[in-house]
Every structure is written in C-alpha cells, then in structure tokens.
Design a protein around this nucleic acid. Sequence first.
DNA 1: AAGAGGCCCTGATAGC
DNA 2: TGCTATCAGGGCCTCT
Length: 286
Amino acid sequence: MPELPEVEIIKQSLKKSILYKKIIKVLIKNRNLRFKIEKNLNKLLSKKKIIKVSRKSKYLIIYFEQNQFLIIHFGMSGTLHLVKKNNYNKTNLSFYNSENLPKKHNHIIIFFKNFKIIYNDPRRFGYLKYFKSYKKMNFFFSNIGLEPLDKNFNLNYLKKIIINKNKNIKNFLLDQKYISGIGNIYANEILYYSKINPYKNVKKLNISDLKKIIYFSKFILKKAIKKGGSTIRDFKNTKGIAGSFQNEFKAYNRENKNCLNKRCLGKIIKVFISNRSSYFCKNCQK
DNA sequence: AAGAGGCCCTGATAGC
DNA sequence: TGCTATCAGGGCCTCT
C-alpha cells in the first residue's frame, strides 16, 4: 500500500504513538531486505528518543535526538504494525491490531515501553536505513524530484524537468528522480483526470496539459490522503485502518468497465507500459 | 548517457 | 495436501 498517500497515513497514525517516546531495543529477525539492514541498528537506536516523525515522497522519516535519522521505505508490500504490550487493552494506539499481525515476514521489531512496532514485508522490496547526520540523509535524498504536494511543484518546475526528455508521460510520472511520490495507481488516476494518453511523449505536452497534471496530481493525492489511502489487497484479517480510496478509482483496476466521464461511451482498457499495468480510456485521453 | 527491461521476492488467484 | 503461469502498490542495476 505504499505510494505517497499511504505513507502519509502511516506517518499520521504512527506519530501519535511514538513521538517523544524512547526506543528500548531493536530486534532484527531478518536483515535481508532490499538492502542489508545495518547489523548494529539495535546499538544505534537503543535509548534514543524520537523527536519528529515526517515523510518525504514515499519515505517515512523518524528523527532522533543528536541529529540521527531512520528512514523506512515500504517497497511493494511493507507494512508497520503497532502492538500494545497488553493486547487486551485495545486503544486507538493500534494501527493494525495485534491479533491481525501476520505470522510470517515480521523482519524488524522496535520495542518501546508499552508497545512495539513491527516491520512486515513479504516481498522484501522495502528497507530501513539509518543516517548519522542530516547531511548524510540529505545527500541520500538529493537525487529524487519534488513531490506533487510541494509548493514548488508548479509550471516552471515541470517545464524545466521535461526539457530534452524523450519519455512517455506515464513513465515520467513514475520516475522518482523527476517527480517523487507517485506510484502506479496514482499515475493512472492522474492521467485519467487530466485526459492525457499515457503513451504521450512529454515533448508533446502543451501548457494546458502541464497545468492539468499539476492540478490533478495535487488534487488526487490530497483526496487519497483524506480517504485514508488505497487498500488494494484485502487485509481480510485486519480491523486496523484500511483506506477507501480504492472505491474511487476511475481508471486503475477498471479494465473493460465504462469510462466514467460524462457523455463518454468509451471503455477503460488495460495495457502494459514498461511492464507496469496501465489503465486508460482511448476516447477521452488524447 | 538517457531510457528500456530484467530482476529482486512471496503470495494470491485463475486456468488447466 | 494439484500444478503452473501470471500478476501485484517499487526501484536498483545492467545493457544498449
């Protein structure tokens, strides 16, 4: 569930529980995520107090005292589970209730006084990374583009980044070094709302196209956040917060369904662009 | 040297 | 208590 809106939702719910709390210890059950997890993560994080929880595009960032940082990227299947020590006492603390905790793939466990946080990730495309200075973290982030919710994500920025690029707009929206935070779901939705064909080369986009992309990427991401993100795979055994934006998809996952634009008689088709499924209406997306 | 595709990995589902 | 192929919310790495 991890595009920008989903990570934002994780951030918001996590923040309430861990802000100003001290980590007791970190247990690494499997270091082999996308990148090998630092062996001494426990040593680095034990007794550290969390002073801020934030997000940058699809990354969750935890700030500690003494200028230290932990980022979490969720890959395709990463989730965080918050489990109270006494799990009979159910409170709002839980992001996912402990009884819905997956049995497998609980790779990293971070212990606090009265609860623990578990990083679960079946496919292991996600990872946690520690930085010992803001400068180092900043360097790590130096090659990702602005996210659409950034106030500087405007016409000038878009004009600047598409210069001399030879790429279709679908791939361009997914390329984190130009625009960050958008994943496959929201790329499809943004192009549908903007009425732009995913195959259209960015060279051929006119000013009106660019304006629509700016407007609708902000609009859709904000709306998705408001709806708690999108939950594609059914978390059947989870009573935790599930998103509802999937109920509002206009293009994604709607193959052969009617186009929802007024007066359009087209159907949504599914194609593969660079191995990622793309859904669009040929009729209105030109 | 920008851009396309392969690949990392597990699990769910469809079709046989 | 079937087996196999395909697909999934991401992005790094290699090759051209």
